[in-house]
């Protein structure tokens, strides 16, 4: 039970609201970035242990009793990966938006009907 979990879930819901309701493609990409941020917050908070410190062993007692004194480092490593991949994917999506805009001169997703039936 942690307030950061709630904030992360709320951010994810805000992001999904943006995905479902926005028409501007740049806003859709931003909404996906907000979902990512919320998910990363939730993931990194799963590794939190009350009273434990960061997984950096800069004193001798931390080196000896590392397993009893640090928070879970595995979610942190995962989130580090997720952030980098998120940046790359966002850049690629914005590139698609730029190309689409150059073709049709509009950012509204309702104008793109090629995949609709």
């Amino acid at each position: 039970m942690n307030i950061i979990h709630i904030i992360g879930f709320i951010l994810m819901i805000i992001g999904f609201w943006g995905l479902l309701t926005q028409k501007n493609m740049i806003k859709i990409v931003l909404a996906l970035a907000i979902v990512e941020t919320g998910l990363q917050l939730v993931m990194v908070t799963f590794g939190f242990i009350k009273g434990h410190t960061a997984p950096i062993l800069d004193s001798s007692e931390l080196v000896k009793g590392a397993a009893e004194m640090i928070v879970d480092p595995v979610p942190q490593a995962l989130v580090l990966t997720a952030i980098v991949i998120g940046v790359a994917v966002n850049a690629l999506m914005l590139t698609f938006v730029i190309r689409l805009y150059q073709k049709k001169k509009t950012l509204s997703i309702t104008e793109y009907k090629d995949l609709k039936w």
């Binding site: 039970m1 942690n2 590794g47 939190f48 242990i49 009350k50 997984p55 950096i56 062993l57 800069d58 080196v63 590392a66 397993a67 009893e68 640090i70 879970d72 480092p73 595995v74 942190q76 490593a77 580090l80 990966t81």
Partner: peptide, 30 residues
């Protein structure tokens, strides 16, 4: 709420410093 490390995380925390010589456990994992 967790009160202690479990499984693979405990292994990384116990072995990271002596096995790989890194201060930062996250770096040794990554």
């Amino acid at each position: 709420e967790k009160s202690e490390l479990s499984g693979v995380a405990r292994g990384y925390a116990e072995r990271g410093a002596s096995e790989l010589g890194t201060q930062n456990i996250v770096t040794s994992i990554v």
